[in-house]
Every structure is written in structure tokens, then in C-alpha cells.
Write a protein that binds this DNA or RNA. Structure first.
Lengths: 158, 158
DNA sequence: CGAGTGAGTTTCATTTCAGAACCCGGAGCG
DNA sequence: CGCTCCGGGTTCTGAAATGAAACTCACTCG
């Protein structure tokens, strides 16, 4: 049915999705970013907040810094101390965070108790829990996932 | 600044995000789902398309099936053969997929060449590349990530 | 009957992960 | 001035996940 085009995958040509996942596609990075969105800044706070092992936290933070998602900035000099904050690119990941959180709320939260201490993201001005929508610029309308169609950008539609 | 509430994390009380990541938060599951959205159905097709090792593909598919993201359905009996398709819950992950793809396009695609064969998701009816927006039901408006505020659902704002 | 195919499973080396313990530069203190 | 504490890591070791390749199995085709 679907032609399943030649698809020269399995070649060492990582798509942006693959690169994105190589950066944040592990079980901790997303949680670190969520913690950062919540206001966590310092190494030990991440460690205590997430329950992550220190060596992994070190590596994850390094990778996120290298990937431009977080920035390591000194907040005092005498004993040199640093804090890890999200860059604008890191903040720009929030749609993905939100999508995952909302999906989880709707599909893996088998008991409402699980959601007890969940952090929710709300529309700042009014405090309403936000929803996410697909927006079509041409049609100036929102639409559900069922109206999505996948296509290849293979420069056939420049 | 932010009070950084007591945050009884590090207790064995996984949030929905953690559970979601335990299900799809590895480097392959998301790619499998993308392939499925593209129309891939069968084991060997996933394997060839993704270049994933077979044992891992087996486990990933099993986990996704257990997690309700995909369904394993026979498509012929005589030699019993199965296909793996997304469930509605799996399709509901597309907002997260889209968010990650779009973030990658904007933040990790250091060369436009990388985006060459990228799959894009478009609005079915008109074919325009979709955008994603946060939607506030109360205000009936879309808004950017900067207008997001994080808050705890800790039943203080029921 | 022998080759081929789809869908795995098994085996084994490599990589990554998690955890505990250790290190280091100041700060507080007696 | 020596001792201990704290934030912020690094170094080790053992457990788990990953990847590649080969093997299995059931069935179909020629």
C-alpha cells in the first residue's frame, strides 16, 4: 500500500530526530530539563530532586551544555560554583515536554494518585492548564492529530 | 526566587513523565513510532528502516505493545505473521514527535543537508507543514512557550 | 526436496548505567 | 592551624542494556 520509498536509512545519515534523541533521548535528560523549568539550578539540587546518580548527572549536564540546551554559569567566585540553567533552545523544548507530560497523563496514568504531585504547565496570564494543538498557518486553524499526514521533504516540494 | 517546593522526589513515586519516559524514553522507541506513522508495519521492515538490532527491536516492540502504544495483529494465519501498528494512544504521541522533530530542525540541524530526507508532518487537507501551539481553553488563544508557567497540581488548586 | 522468507531467539563482546566511595577547594570553628 | 563540613564533582566496580552475527522455526514456492 504505502510505497515505502527506497528510504536510504541504515546509512550513517542521522536525521534531526535521531540527533535530537541522541541528545535528550535518554531517561534522564528530559527529567533534568523539567527540573530546570521548575527552577532547579544547582548540581546537588538536581541530584536530590531527581534521585539520579552523580556521575550520570555530570555527564548528562555536560552533554546538555554541549548540545546548547543548558548553560553552565558561575554564580560565585571565591569557591567557584556553577549553576545549570536552560538556554533559550532548552526552553524551546517545552512543547515536547508538554506533549509528553500530557500524553502520559492521558495514557499511562493508570491511577489518578500517580498524578498527585505532578507538575503541570499553565498559561501564565490566566493559570489555565494549557493544551496543545496543531496549527495550520494556511488554514488558520487548529486540528487534531488525525488530520496529520506524513510526507517527505526530499526537496520535491521546495 | 522560585520557592522550589519541598518536592518529595527521590521517593519511589514515579510521575507520569517518568513512566512515559520509561516506555518511550530511549533512543529507539520514538524512531519506531515515527516509522509506524510513516506506514511501516512489519518486523523486518522496521529493522531495515531503522537499522536497529533485532533483539532490541523485539524488546522495544514488546514494550510498546505492553504499554498500549502499539498493537500486534496477525495479518495472515497459515504461516502466522504479525504486524505492529500504532494504537490510538500511539497516534496520540504524534504531538510529542512533532515537537521533537521541530525542535531538532531548529536547534540541532547544523547543516541544511541534514534535513534533506527528513519526514515532515503536514496538515492533511492542505499539505501545509504544521506548526504547534499552546492553546488556552479559557482565553481561546494560542500563546508561545514564554507564556508558560509551571505549577504543582499538588491538589492545592483543585 | 531444497531454497527462501518472516519473525524471532541465542550467544557473546562492547557500551552504558547505577551506586558507593573517594577527592578537592574553600569556609567555619575552636 | 588543624579538623570537619559542604558543594561539586571524579574514580572505581558490578549490573544492565546494546549491537552484530548466527541460529531456529514454520511455512511457502518452485
Amino acid at each position: 500500500m504505502s510505497p515505502t520509498p527506497p528510504a536510504q536509512r541504515s546509512t550513517p545519515e542521522p536525521t534531526t530526530l535521531e540527533r535530537t534523541l541522541a541528545l535528550v533521548g535518554d531517561r534522564w535528560s528530559i527529567l533534568i530539563i523539567r527540573a530546570a523549568l521548575r527552577g532547579v539550578r544547582r548540581f546537588d539540587d538536581y541530584q536530590a530532586d531527581l534521585g539520579i546518580a552523580r556521575p550520570i548527572l555530570t555527564r548528562r549536564l555536560q552533554r546538555l551544555v554541549e548540545g546548547g540546551v543548558m548553560a553552565k554559569e558561575p554564580y560565585q567566585d571565591h569557591p567557584p560554583r556553577f549553576e545549570y540553567r536552560l538556554t533559550p533552545a532548552g526552553v524551546a523544548l517545552s512543547p515536547a515536554l508538554v506533549a509528553l507530560i500530557r500524553w502520559g497523563d492521558q495514557h499511562v496514568a493508570d491511577s489518578p494518585d500517580t498524578r498527585r504531585a505532578e507538575i503541570v504547565l499553565v498559561h501564565g496570564p490566566c493559570g489555565t492548564e494549557l493544551e496543545q494543538a496543531f496549527w495550520c498557518r494556511s488554514c488558520a486553524t487548529t486540528f487534531p492529530p488525525t488530520a496529520i499526514r506524513a510526507t517527505s521533504r526530499d526537496r520535491t516540494d521546495t
